[in-house]
Design a protein around this nucleic acid. Structure first.
Length: 477
RNA sequence: GGCCCCUUCGUCUAGAGGUUAGGACGGCAGCCUCUCACGUUGCAGACGCGGGUUCAAUUCCCGCAGGGGUCACCA
């Protein structure tokens, strides 16, 4: 079987480097990877950093490194290059500009100078009148070159596209907003960049999350206006929390770094993700990545949104550890996972002065190695905060603040925690002790910031979430 | 709320007109065992509702209900 270049399968994953590497990215990557590799196609990684404010190189590095850890290797990407680069959208600005100009010239898009205040007002009015919200077309016929560029959606007709998993999907043009394609900072929005890049990079199949279904008509319109052949679409069901909502970090661990830190094997996570929305014909539930690639079939994807159930993941990890690792492999696994020289030396640095004989190390440093360090809820009280709801809210805000911290280092934690005290009008010593108790389970520990930095973001956040759970269940309202 | 997507045990799923509706996680119980865990055996547990189509619907069609997504100068 020889594929000519023309019908080579090409798929892509387009993570946005705006935070921690997400388990959803891994899930979609896995399916894209399997689909392409099975057909000797190419799997492309494209960094979608068109949100200047939120994107960071740090986040990009973390995402690449997590995906590498998982082993879904891409053929083209910002780090490995390829024939259709650059693979970072922020480096393709001149390309998008060219196409935007073309769209404006052909009358399929227009410049819009409406202020955000006016937009908010229009929206408010529409809401009040129970009308569908969307841009009101104020600048549609104006000849100007300033502000943003919007898509000129036809006022009548239907747009339809075929989804490989769901069949035909039809949407009225009147339901499609005059979406912004080009922002006033000179960056494209997702919609424009994704269509232009998919075309230029010769993407044949767009396999992405279900959340994109409702914006696909805009993309179809763009393909039409450019005169391009759209790729095939397949929208995967979204991973869910236990309550069926879209998986989110407030209700679930979602960072790939968490799974790595917590001691899940990459092949287990991949195996588990492969169980989400997919099943082998022979019912097999334990399989390697090559197995998955070989047996993958779009038609076997089930469409109900799968709940990302940690219990089963845990069981699977146990099986791999028990069955697929002999004693010496297990030993070296522990050595690198838990007792690496670098981790150990950071801890030694913090506890050495307290130790009088070697075994003291264990009692001073146990919490660096443990999973759960929760203690009773009173320990998490903050002086002056009597109200339980208030307490919960404070910790929730704090976790979110720490989650956003990247890099998670001593300076950052220090600044972040102190700023937080200011904001919330809490004395630093009144906050630091309960936080210490949350992350270490002990009153006595090495200096808090250093300890947190060594523990790492994922352990800290997990422990804070666990503490929150304890507060919610144990403390009287 | 408008639009769109979805709907089999608590969870992940098999099933593609006729099955005692199967498996896995979790739960419960037995066995194994110095304990726990592992392992093993067994038990409980599902086709959302209402109409059609059909000799026959979990399976096909239509409604309803429920869940989800989306309505940004975020992706």
């Amino acid at each position: 079987m020889v594929n000519s270049a023309a019908d080579e399968i090409r798929v892509r994953i387009g993570p946005s480097p705006t935070g921690d590497p997400h388990v959803g990215t891994a899930y979609v990557s896995l399916f894209n990877y399997a689909f392409s590799k099975q057909q000797n196609g190419k799997f492309i990684l494209r960094i979608e950093d068109t949100d200047q404010k939120r994107s960071s190189l740090d986040s990009e590095r973390a995402i690449l490194s997590s995906l590498k850890w998982l082993g879904v290797q891409w053929d083209e990407g910002p780090d490995v290059g390829g024939p259709y680069g650059p693979y970072r959208q922020s480096e393709r600005l001149d390309i998008y500009k060219k196409y935007i100009d073309q769209l404006v010239e052909s009358g399929h898009a227009y410049w819009c100078t409406c202020s955000s205040e006016r937009l908010a007002e229009v929206r408010k009015r529409q809401l009040a009148l129970k009308q569908p919200t969307g841009y009101d077309g104020h600048c549609r016929e104006l000849a100007q070159i300033a502000g943003v560029v919007r898509l000129k959606t036809p006022s009548e007709g239907k747009i339809s596209f075929h989804d490989l998993l769901r069949g035909n999907i039809v949407i009225e043009c009147s339901e499609v907003d005059d979406q912004v394609l080009y922002k006033s900072d000179g960056f494209p929005t997702y919609h424009l960049a994704n269509v232009v890049d998919d075309h230029l990079m010769k993407i044949t199949h767009v396999i992405r999350g279900e959340e994109w279904i409702s914006s696909t008509p805009k993309h179809i319109l763009l393909y039409r206006f450019f005169g391009w052949q759209p790729p095939q679409f397949a929208h995967l069901p979204l991973l869910r929390n236990a309550d069926k909502s879209k998986v989110s970090k407030r209700k679930n661990p979602v960072s790939l770094e968490y799974f790595k830190e917590a001691g899940y094997l990459p092949e287990v996570l991949l195996n588990f993700l492969g169980l989400m929305a997919f099943s082998f014909e022979d019912g097999r539930e334990i399989f390697s990545l090559p197995d998955f690639v070989q047996n993958f079939k779009l038609e076997r994807i089930s469409l109900g949104g799968p709940v990302f159930d940690l219990q089963k993941l845990l069981w699977l990890n146990g099986r791999y550890l028990r069955e697929l690792r002999n004693n010496s492999q297990f030993t070296s696994y522990l050595q690198e996972q838990l007792f690496s020289t670098s981790y150990l030396s950071q801890i030694v640095n913090l506890v050495k002065e307290r130790v009088e004989k070697s075994e003291d190390f264990i009692s001073y440093a146990d919490f660096f190695f443990k999973g759960d360090v929760t203690i009773s809820a009173e320990n998490y009280q903050i002086k002056g905060i009597e109200d339980k709801k208030k307490l919960v809210e404070i910790y929730e805000t704090l976790v979110e603040k720490l989650e956003a911290l990247r890099p998670f280092d001593v300076e950052g934690i220090d600044a972040s925690l102190r700023a937080f005290c200011q904001e919330k009008d809490i004395k630093s010593r009144d906050l630091f002790m309960p936080v210490r108790l949350i992350v270490t389970g002990k009153k006595a520990s090495p200096p808090l910031f250093e300890t947190m930095a060594v523990l790492g973001k994922e352990r800290c956040r997990t422990r804070m979430r666990a503490a929150l759970q304890i507060i919610k269940t144990q403390l009287p309202a």
